[in-house]
Design a protein around this nucleic acid. Structure first.
Length: 417
RNA sequence: GCAGGGUUAGUGAAGCGGGCAAACACGUCAGACUGUAAAUCUGAUGGCUUAUGCCUUCGUAGGUUCGAAUCCUACACCCUGCACCA
């Protein structure tokens, strides 16, 4: 690591808005910093992963990381950027989510040094009146009211906002203050969407402790062509948990990244050096059709999140499915692996293909299945299939399984009994 | 509490007694072209073994009507204003 952290972060596109006048502050001094994830779901998404990658660079450059699970803040729910009041999560679910997020922290930052805290630890004993006296009295209303999302939620034709959600930034701000007091945390890193909440903490530390604290925020990762951000509330969230987004789908997601975005993502989501990335991009630009950049991206990210073994397995399967439409070469073992990755279903011989498709979840209803047939979108073992087809034992490849495909790259496995 | 306005499919938003499974846009899915890209073009987009048919949907529950997303009543939630409170 001879490149300075500030330069590294800047080059990778992790530098967005910060309270530092000069970003090289992070090169001069070792900070104890924190990063938090809300357990509003039982898994992080690739949106969180981007910030996680940034955190890795901070750790690698000798800063001490405190990773926070928002067990308490999750009980309220972050209203920022939401146009409607959120549904509350029940405490049991939240507890499960918190545990899941903790596991993912350990996985993503494996081999690195860090500590994990849950803000439930300190919020569970706080009394409301004490909080209002000690914290609330020090927070000016003007700033809270001025926030953009508050304004939009209070404006005409809006859905309003509850006091609970409105106060959210106080709770999150208090995390920063608490960590400052107990662990000497003076820096928070976050996605840019968290800026407003983070600044609340900086303010508190300044007003209550009279000390300086900082924020480093990363831009939200967006798709340049559509402008849509990655994240869990968007359609088609990509989860880090293999049970929610299979390693196969995960790999495919990265493989299908548009040309326009691939370089940005390589910088953000892989640990490859500047030289390595430039080499890959150089090759890619010479022969875009080979998609060297996408392949590298998919391999690196999948390896980081799901491990080496899974990655190799997924790559083998991808080669099979997309290399040729002849599946007869697949072995029973390959199929067993695919069954882990793809949606699957057990069917009896004589069951209609339409029924089987619905059961695999490849289509959501019989009507949709018929639509797909009308559009020639369904193949069985690589051959176009007919709408009225019923499954036969002779359709099975190795180990009694058959492969159905919808469109160009959605597959499912049907076991014929 | 009072008075107005609102609640329509994944989202936004039309419709305001029959032709409404509900315009349009976005999104999503598929097809063509490709590189398992992007852009573009085409088609589909509540469910039902595909149907000039049936069923379920326009906040919830009732009602009026031959017929209701459309009218009436009650309820719930949201918005705006006023009042109350401070």
């Amino acid at each position: 690591m001879h490149t300075a952290l500030s330069q590294e972060l800047k080059w990778r596109g992790f530098s967005y808005q910060t309270t530092f006048d000069d970003i090289s502050e992070v090169d001069k001094k070792k900070f104890t910093f924190y990063w938090g994830v809300d357990p509003s779901s039982d898994s992080m998404t690739i949106g969180n992963l981007a910030t996680a990658m940034m955190v890795r660079y901070f750790i690698a450059h000798g800063h001490h990381a405190v990773l926070l699970v928002g067990g308490a803040t999750g009980l309220i729910g972050d209203p920022d950027g939401k146009s409607k009041e959120r549904e509350l999560l029940n405490p049991e679910q939240l507890k499960k989510n918190s545990e899941a997020i903790t596991r993912q922290y350990k996985r993503i930052f494996k081999g690195l040094e860090f500590e994990i805290v849950d803000n439930q630890q300190w919020f569970k004993d706080i009394k409301y009146i004490d909080f209002l006296r000690d914290i609330g009295k020090n927070v000016p209303m003007r700033q809270m009211l001025g926030r953009e999302f508050v304004q939009s939620r209070l404006g005409e034709d809006s859905n309003g906002i509850s006091y609970g959600e409105f106060s959210y930034s106080l709770i999150q701000g208090y995390d920063f203050l608490h960590l400052f007091r107990t662990k000497g945390v003076t820096l928070q890193v976050c996605g840019s969407d968290q800026w407003g909440n983070s600044i609340a903490g900086v303010e508190m530390i300044r007003r209550i402790e009279g000390k300086e604290a900082h924020i480093w925020s990363a831009p939200l990762v967006v798709n340049k062509s559509t402008g849509a951000k990655f994240g869990k509330t968007e359609e088609g969230a990509v989860w880090l948990d293999g049970a929610k987004t299979s390693p196969y789908d995960f790999y495919q997601f990265w493989l299908n990244v548009e040309d326009e975005n691939v370089e940005d993502y390589l910088k953000i989501y892989t640990l490859l050096s500047k030289e390595e990335i430039e080499a890959v991009i150089g090759e890619f630009q010479k022969e875009p059709g080979q998609r060297k950049a996408q392949k590298t991206l998919a391999r690196e990210v999948t390896r980081l999140v799901h491990g080496e073994e899974e990655t190799e397995s997924v790559e083998r399967i991808t080669a099979c499915l997309f290399g040729s439409s002849d599946y007869s070469g697949l072995t029973a073992k390959d199929i067993a692996t695919m069954k882990q990755m793809l949606p699957s279903h057990e069917a009896k011989a004589g069951e209609s293909l339409i029924q089987a498709l619905v059961s695999t979840g490849l289509v959501s209803s019989g009507s949709e299945a018929r639509r797909m047939f009308a559009q020639n979108a369904i193949t069985l073992n690589g051959k176009p299939a007919d709408e009225n087809y019923t499954l036969k034992e002779s359709d099975a490849l190795a180990a009694g399984h058959t492969i159905v495909r919808k469109g160009k790259n959605k597959y499912a496995i049907v076991e014929i009994k």
